[in-house]
């Protein structure tokens, strides 16, 4: 068991080493500030391609802030400043020449509360491909909508309801619709910010099953407050605390025998 305190760089480099997996996302020395308040401190984290990485930690630890650095969602917060280096597929995503809209078209995002557009089921999924001008013909768009809904495990449930409002679906269906909407633009990365926190156990199980299937084609990073969910769906887990990355490693290791005592205290429910 290591003592409390900052991890030294050597250890962090060792932990960041992703075995047998290419790192699609590489973060080095990422600091985030909201005005004068620093929210993230020197985060070094690699995220492997086509695997699921869970970000866990108590509320306010910075995991969602970190997630939103990956698709530059923090840019929309005026007082937010991001420093350090984040590369996706070796490209510095904070370089001034980067087209943020194009960047976000490569990164799908699913939020805590299902947020379908006030449009039909069909239009929710077709919206992204149309917006980015990627599909021009109706037949191709129909095929893309069907394929996306199938991949989201929703097609059989909504194929006869494509014209109905997305908001008429159940909560779990709405969340899978949002996932279908996210993958319709063929992203390489899907970010999920507590995607099951508003869902019942059955809908949660369906989303988890879906995550397991999607990981073969997408790099998924998920923020979750459920330790069991992190253990079930992810191959790697990163524990954040007070804006610092305390420990990252194979999920099995983190939940069976973490190296850091703060991680152990958190995953066993000993934070008072």
């Amino acid at each position: 068991m290591k003592l409390n305190g900052d991890l030294i760089m050597d250890e962090q480099k060792e932990q960041n080493n992703i075995r047998n997996k290419k790192s699609l996302i590489e973060c080095r020395g990422v600091d985030v500030f909201y005005g004068d308040k620093q929210a993230l401190f020197g985060i070094n984290l690699d995220i492997g391609e086509k695997e699921v990485t869970s970000l866990i930690g108590p509320s306010g630890c910075g995991k969602s802030t970190f997630l939103r650095c990956i698709n530059r969602m923090n840019d929309v917060i005026e007082i937010c400043k991001v420093e350090g280096n984040i590369k996706i597929d070796n490209e510095d995503i904070y370089h001034p020449d980067v087209d943020v809209v194009e960047l976000r078209s490569r990164i799908g995002m699913v939020f805590q509360k299902p947020n379908p557009f006030p449009k039909s089921v069909y239009d929710n999924v077709a919206y992204g491909p149309k917006l980015h001008g990627r599909i021009l013909h109706k037949d191709d768009l129909d095929a893309k909508v069907e394929k996306s809904l199938e991949r989201a495990g929703l097609w059989s449930e909504v194929k006869d309801r494509l014209g109905e409002p997305g908001t008429s679906l159940s909560g779990g269906q709405q969340q899978r619709l949002c996932i279908a909407r996210a993958i319709a633009i063929d992203p390489s990365i899907i970010l999920m910010d507590e995607p099951c926190s508003a869902l019942d156990p059955i809908a949660t199980a369906k989303i988890e099953e879906l995550i397991d299937e999607l990981k073969d084609n997408f790099t998924i990073t998920i923020v979750t407050h459920s330790m069991q969910q992190a253990a079930r769906v992810s191959q790697r887990t990163a524990f954040f605390h007070l804006g610092k990355l305390i420990e990252v490693g194979d999920t099995e290791k983190i939940f069976r025998s973490p190296d850091h005592e703060q991680t152990e205290a958190y995953v066993t429910g000993r934070y008072g």
Partner: peptide, 12 residues
């Protein structure tokens, strides 16, 4: 470490 997040031998 702030008081609200102190580690403890006891479970919450």
């Amino acid at each position: 470490m702030d008081k609200g997040n102190k580690m403890d031998d006891q479970h919450i």
